[in-house]
């Protein structure tokens, strides 16, 4: 709302704590809603884990607009809340592993100047699937998950591309 505020480099701009709190709340609510919508979409394919990753949209926008710590906080809240509301403990564990790895990779790639939001999103989606699969391999002590990783890498890349383009369009347009 405050248009007169001096606008220098967007990334350097610090957001006042009160606004940040409000943003985190709104973003978390949005992420939770998208998680729920995603859970309503049936699994089309025979391979588990193939999904759109709608909630990642919020994480990416938060990562680019608010910073890595708020994005991590939003992810954590979203996973805990959606796990408690619609899932179970195992689901929380898988989501946490995926989200942590995904956010770390996205953060790292965001700092490489050569990648834009789409690349960050693709890498994040693939990392998310890899993290979940790593937990599954660990819990089940099953090494033969090579096939899943290939399928999940492809599906992650495609959904990451879509979500990345969408996130990029959002990041361009919203002003925080």
């Amino acid at each position: 709302m405050e248009n007169k505020e001096p606008r220098k480099n967007e990334k350097e701009k610090t957001i006042p704590a009160s606004r940040m709190t409000a943003y985190i709340g709104v973003f978390t609510a949005l992420a939770l809603l998208l998680s729920y919508i995603e859970s309503l979409i049936p699994v089309f394919l025979a391979v588990p884990g193939v999904k759109l990753g709608l909630a990642n949209l919020v994480t990416i926008v938060a990562l680019f607009k608010l910073g890595v710590l708020p994005a991590a906080g939003i992810s954590l809240c979203r996973i805990l809340l959606s796990g408690i509301l619609f899932g179970n403990l195992t689901m929380i564990l898988y989501s946490l592993a995926g989200a942590t790895l995904s956010l770390l990779v996205m953060w790292a790639l965001k700092h490489c100047r050569i990648f834009f939001v789409t690349g960050v999103s693709i890498a994040g989606a693939v990392a998310h699937n890899a993290g979940q699969l790593a937990v599954a391999a660990f819990l089940l002590e099953n090494g033969s998950m090579f096939y899943y990783m290939c399928v999940l890498a492809i599906s992650g890349a495609v959904s990451g591309l879509l979500i990345g383009l969408l996130a990029g369009s959002i990041i361009r347009r919203i002003r925080i």
Binding site: I114, F115, F116, V117, T118, I122, L165, G168, I171
Partner: peptide, 9 residues
């Protein structure tokens, strides 16, 4: 100012 897709992407 923000392009969506880079070559690296």
């Amino acid at each position: 100012r923000t392009r969506l897709v880079s070559r690296a992407d």
